[in-house]
Amino acid sequence: MKTLRLGLIALSAAAAAALSPAQAGTMILGGYPSQLMVIDEAKGSITQEVDLKTGLPVSMRLSDDGKLLYATTITTSGIEVLDVATRKIVNSFSLNTPAVRYRFSGGVPDPTGRYFYILGTRIDKGIDAFRISKPQFMVVDLQTKQVVKTAELEPDDQKFGARGGLMLSPDGKTLYAFRDKILVVNTADLKTVDHFDLSKPEYPGMQDVSFGGGVGRLQTPGQFVSLFETEDPYIHNKTFGVARLDLDTRKFTFTPIGPSPKALSGLEVSPDGKYGYTVAVTGELGSQRCEFWRFDLGSNKALDKSEFQCRRRFYFGMSGNGQKLYIYGAGFDVAVYDAKTLKPEGAWELTHDITMSGMVITR
C-alpha cells in the first residue's frame, strides 16, 4: 500500500507539471549510455527513444529551420543527424579511426547543411606515443564524413583549451566562438579576425550545454542575445549583463545589470521576447544557494528572484511556450517550475540518466 501511495503521488506531481496539449511541445534530452529521449511536454513522459550508433551524446544543436537536430557523441567522436519530423537518424558516422582520434564537445552546422564546424583537438597514435594537437577549428564534411579543413587557434587564444560554444552568421561567412573572450572567425580560412572582450558566465556543472539549442537566436534571426560577463582591468571585479550580438554585422551592445554571482547560467528567453530567465548560484559546497532570476529584456532590469533546491550538478531550460522552467541533469528526473511564480510544480521521472548534452524543444 505504501508503494502504491508513493506511486500515485509521483503520478499526480507529473500530471500537475505537464502542459496542456495545445501548449505543449516536444522535449529532447540525451540519455546514458547512447540514447536521445523524446518527451511529450503535455504528458511529462517519454514517447520514444532514439538509439545512437556512435555512443554517448554530449551536445545537441537544431538547424536554423528547426528541421534537423545535430548530436555529437564522445564515445567515438561521432556526429548523428536526426530528422525532427520523423524522429529518424538520417546521417551517422564517427570521425575516429584506428590511428586518429578527435576530441570535441559540440559544433554548429552551416546554412547549407553540408558542413559542420567544431572546436577540438586531434590525437595521432604513433609508434611509441600519442601526439595531441593544439586546439583548432575544424570543418567536417557531412557527406564525405571527414575533416576537410583545420586551423590552429592563435597562441593567445589557446590557453582556454578546446572549449567554447559556437555560432554561425546566417550567411555562413563568420564563426563566433564564445570562450574567455568572443572570437570572430572568418570561415573561408578559419582565421580569427577580431575579439570582443566579453565572456560567457560559468554554468553550474558544465558550461557547454548553454549553447545546445541555439538559445538567444529564437526570437530575432541573425541575432544572439544572452548573459555575458565583463571584468574591469584593475581590481578584476566581474559584472554581468545582457549582450545583443548581430551575427551579420559583428556589432554588439552590452548593458550591465550588477555584480556577478559565483556561477551564472545562460539566458532563456520567453517566446514573446519580453522576459529572460537565468539561474544564479552563490556560496560554497554545503551552503550553496540556487535561485531563478527573471529580467525585463525591454529595460534590461532584474525583476524578481526565487530560491530552489540545489543539486550537485544541474542544467537549466525552458518549455517551448515559456510557461515552465526546467532543472535537470545528473539524474533520472526533470524538475518543473512555473515561470510566473518561479515555484515548483512537480517532476518527471525518465528512463535514462540525463547526459550533459543540453535540452532541445521542438514542435
Rank of each mutant, 00 (worst) to 15 (best):
M1I: 14
G7W: 09
I9S: 10
A10I: 14
A10E: 12
A16M: 12
A18N: 04
P21L: 03
A24R: 06
T26P: 02
P33N: 08
Q35Y: 07
V38W: 02
I39W: 00
D40M: 07
K43C: 00
T47A: 00
E49W: 05
E49C: 01
L56T: 04
M60P: 10
L62K: 05
D64Q: 06
D64M: 08
D65G: 04
K67A: 04
K67D: 01
T73N: 05
T73R: 06
T75H: 02
T76K: 13
V81F: 09
V81A: 07
L82E: 01
L82Q: 07
D83K: 08
D83G: 13
A85Y: 05
K88L: 14
I89R: 01
V90E: 13
S92Q: 06
F93N: 02
R101W: 11
F104K: 09
G106V: 06
P111N: 15
P111E: 14
R114G: 06
R114I: 13
I118E: 14
I118V: 14
I123P: 01
K125W: 03
G126W: 12
D128E: 15
A129L: 09
A129V: 14
R131A: 10
R131D: 09
I132A: 04
K134A: 05
P135S: 13
V140R: 04
D141L: 08
K145P: 10
K145T: 04
E152G: 10
K159I: 14
F160E: 14
F160T: 08
A162C: 07
G165A: 12
S169V: 07
G172F: 10
T174K: 06
Y176I: 10
Y176R: 11
F178Y: 15
D180N: 08
D180R: 04
N186Y: 04
N186Q: 11
N186V: 06
D194I: 09
H195D: 15
F196M: 09
D197L: 12
D197E: 13
L198V: 13
P201G: 10
G205H: 08
M206V: 10
G213W: 00
G216L: 03
L218V: 01
Q223E: 15
D232K: 13
H236W: 11
F240M: 08
F240P: 06
A243W: 08
R244T: 10
L245C: 05
K251A: 14
P256L: 13
I257V: 13
G258L: 10
P261R: 13
P261N: 13
L264T: 02
L267C: 00
L267Y: 00
S270T: 07
L285N: 14
G286Y: 01
S287C: 15
R289E: 03
C290R: 04
C290L: 10
R294G: 15
G298P: 05
A302Y: 12
A302N: 00
A302Q: 15
S306F: 10
Y315E: 08
G317M: 11
G317V: 03
S319I: 01
G320F: 04
G320E: 00
G322L: 06
K324Q: 02
K324S: 03
L325E: 01
Y326S: 14
G329P: 00
G331P: 01
D333E: 15
V334S: 03
V334M: 03
D338R: 13
K340N: 15
L342W: 05
E345I: 04
G346A: 00
A347F: 01
W348L: 00
W348K: 00
E349H: 04
H352A: 03
T355L: 04
M356W: 08
R363M: 14
